[in-house]
């Protein structure tokens, strides 16, 4: 997936995460993370963000995430939404639940 424009998804409400993504030409996936549970889950949140973008075929991006205690599924949803918006794409890849 090729990112074209900066985009955001999510909110600053409790249990949510606000994700901003900017396209980048190189440098891989760079994440600036703020979280009220940084100590316990900071590493895990970064992993989920990276995994989600890699699954969508995004190789380079600047990501800013402000986490308010979001579950993994919420982080995935917000990162994916921001990525699709940044790619100006509605070609979603839905997969069946295993």
């Amino acid at each position: 997936m090729k990112l074209k424009v900066p985009s955001t998804a999510g909110t600053m409400e409790s249990n949510d995460v606000l994700v901003s993504i900017k396209p980048a030409k190189s440098g891989g996936i760079q994440i600036a993370l703020q979280s009220n549970v940084m100590q316990q889950y900071g590493r895990r949140i970064r992993e989920v963000i990276t995994e989600t973008l890699e699954e969508l075929g995004v190789e380079n991006a600047e990501v800013e995430a402000t986490d308010k205690g979001a579950l993994d599924c919420t982080i995935r949803a917000r990162v994916a939404a921001a990525a699709y918006r940044a790619a100006e794409s509605s070609d979603y890849h839905w997969e069946a639940k295993k």
Binding site: A9, G10, C73, T74, A77, R78, A80, R85, Y92, K97
Partner: peptide, 15 residues
Amino acid sequence: KDTARLLVYNALKTL
């Protein structure tokens, strides 16, 4: 609509 759809999709798949 796009963010809600993705959120419900991910919630149904994992929770």
